[in-house]
Amino acid sequence: MNKSFALKDMFPIIKEQLDSGGSATFAIHGTSMLPMLKDRKDSVRIIKPKEQPKKYDIIFYRRKDGSFILHRIVKVKKGGYICRGDNQILNEFPVTEDMVIGVVEAYTRNNEWISVNSKRQYFYSRFKVNTILFLRTKRYLEAIINKLFGKGAKK
């Protein structure tokens, strides 16, 4: 009775489910939300936002190219949201209201469900968003070191 599915096929059902006041749970794919969410191991529970999504919320949205994304709002601007995966250094803007499908209300960690309103998520999200400069610097330095001493280095 169970089978894997493509998000784009299930999208109308997800939308109806969320519009009815219900929720949808599914496993996440990709590494953009590490270390919080592990590729195909962790799941999220999405609901329709009860209020305007705000900074630090993780939103589920669809880009103009049709792809589905689950990233965190790092800033709210007039023209839309600035979003970024926890494991990424580049921002995406604008993510507009019409692109937003839902917001994460809970996620799994080692098969245990955790609310986004928990203390650990509170501190983790603030840390992640506000220390981006360190991550960017770290990645930049890693790239330089790789270039000088890594696989691509000249001998």
């Binding site: 089978k3 299930m10 059902i13 489910q17 219900g22 949808a24 749970t25 599914f26 496993a27």
Partner: peptide
């Protein structure tokens, strides 16, 4: 959807990891 019939739970939760 996608060539089969999905059981929805209006107002509740659908678990796409194990949907019917």
């Amino acid at each position: 959807a996608a060539g089969s019939f999905v059981v929805m739970n209006i107002g509740g939760n659908i678990d796409f990891n194990g949907m019917i």
